[in-house]
């Protein structure tokens, strides 16, 4: 396994990872804020919301990776990768929200 010097792909992957976590969190918070069916009906539902949320989060992550990978230049990618502090700024509130809103 070797390391390639491809900062644009690196930035796209970082953006995708964060977008996946952020998308899932936003979807969950929106679900929680909306008036849902009765608790008993949740079990009997044909579709499983968890699968849908994961699928949508994956789709959002891929779209973000595609856009970032297409738009970013290697120089811009290096600049953005240097702002690694943005990762916990986005990820930690997501984790807190997911823990607080079951």
């Amino acid at each position: 396994m070797s390391v390639r010097d491809r900062p644009v792909l690196g930035l796209a992957a970082a953006a995708a990872g964060l977008a996946g976590a952020l998308s899932y969190t936003v979807q969950r918070l929106v679900d929680a804020a909306q008036e849902g069916p009765a608790p008993g009906a949740l079990i009997a539902q044909e579709h499983i919301p968890y699968y849908w949320r994961c699928g949508a989060a994956l789709l959002h992550a891929l779209v973000v990776a595609l856009v970032v990978g297409t738009v970013a230049t290697p120089e811009a990618a290096q600049r953005w990768l240097a702002r690694a502090w943005l990762v916990p700024v986005v990820a930690l509130p997501c984790l807190v929200a997911l823990l607080a809103v079951p």
Binding site: V3, A13, A16, G17, A21, R53, A91, C94
Partner: peptide, 18 residues
Amino acid sequence: AACLALVVGGAVVLTTAG
């Protein structure tokens, strides 16, 4: 779900920009 997104993202970043 969040864990998987972050860990896989981190692994790809390390491979491509490490």
